[in-house]
Computed example of a mutant assay.
Amino acid sequence: MSLAKSRDVADRERLLIRLVDLCDGNSQELRSPRVQALLSQVFFDLVFQAEFDIRLRLADKIASADWAPSALINILSFDDIEIARPIIARSPILKDPDLIRILVEATLEHQVEVARRPEIGPQVVEAILKAGKPEVMTALVENETARVSRDHLFDLVNKAQEVASLHSPLTQHPGLNDELAGYLYAWVGETLRKSLAGRFDLDTPALDRALSLSVSEAKSGKAQGGRLQTMAPTETDEERSDRQLVAKLDMSGQLRPGFLVKALKDRRLSLFVAGLATLGRFEARDVRKALDSGRPEILALACAAVGVDRTVFPSLLAQVRNLNHGLPGGGTDGDRRAMNAFVKVNPSAAASAFRRAIAEI
């Protein structure tokens, strides 16, 4: 009580630390709503008046505590980065929605700490990729404990085309495989290409020839597309508008497979392309290649990857052909292959098969 009445900074620090020590010894008894409410009030009153050094020491003391009031932990996670860092890194109180809120509302330094947090889950990884901030994505790739799916890793490899800081950590990432290493090979420098060739079974002569051809075509303005293309295709105003609309729907969690059907019913092929590319984390140019090919089974694989039902696909394919000058072709045999693409194929396998098929066109 004498410490509580004192206005001396050192006394208030002693009081906070003694309270933390007391709680650490009785953590099982502190989880009832009544006690949590009392703890929140006590700590808020003390922290509100606390100096930086006191808040810093408090954050370090309670970062790993499972009894700490959620509201207090969330406030400290938005404090100055030195105070927030141990909280973001270690607090078991912070859940995925709390971490995503930090990614949306806090400073770039706080976001980087979220990306470095051990064992972050797929929802947090997805939020990092949607924001697309180079520093945060680089911290994510360097965090080998993060639960990064193969599709997430493909997205990161694709972003490496424009974000140089991703190159080195991606070449060392444990989730990289031969397919992804082949794509990454196009974006990195000579030293990292040698590193990739040493780790993976790559057809480096073929990749080098494709790179050389791509550079020559880019310089002459005759780039024909594909994964090794170095010049982006021209985007029309309609395509840009459709892409932006789809991005907003995706960010708000409202983008669903049914959106693709509606886009075709509205006779908006560009919107369909943007929606399918975003849902599947594909390149829009790859979706267009599938639409313009003579192999409707490739489009079927993309649709299966994003959850389009097999019974819906025949109608969807007919609408695509109606809007795209009869393409993708293939006739009756092509339609049969397309329907077979849905048989016993899970979304992840369908996405991988789509990317392999596109690479062969």
Rank of each mutant, 00 (worst) to 15 (best):
R240Y: 12
S348H: 04
A37W: 14
L213K: 15
F354Y: 05
I87W: 01
V148S: 06
V246Y: 06
P347I: 01
L180Q: 10
N158S: 15
L276Q: 07
G189M: 02
L316Q: 03
Q123T: 13
T332W: 04
F200L: 04
A247R: 10
D250G: 15
V104D: 15
Q319F: 04
G294N: 14
S70N: 10
V273D: 05
E190N: 10
K61C: 14
R55S: 04
V20C: 14
Q123Y: 13
L94Y: 11
T145L: 10
L108F: 08
A263V: 06
E29G: 12
S241V: 07
S6F: 01
E82K: 13
S352M: 00
L184M: 01
Q41M: 05
N177K: 11
R281Y: 10
I298M: 00
L316C: 03
H152I: 04
A181H: 03
D96G: 07
S241Q: 14
I62P: 00
V42S: 00
L291Q: 03
G226F: 08
A186K: 11
P97E: 02
I100M: 08
D151K: 11
P174H: 04
N74P: 07
A300L: 00
L301D: 03
A139E: 06
E119M: 08
A223E: 13
R150Q: 15
N322A: 13
V42E: 03
R12K: 14
G326P: 05
K222R: 12
A59Q: 01
Q172Y: 14
R321C: 00
D242F: 13
T230P: 05
E82L: 15
E119V: 15
K289F: 03
S216K: 15
H152M: 04
F44V: 03
L299S: 12
K95Y: 06
C23H: 09
E360G: 01
L249M: 12
A71Y: 14
S77D: 02
L323P: 10
L30V: 09
P169W: 09
P122F: 07
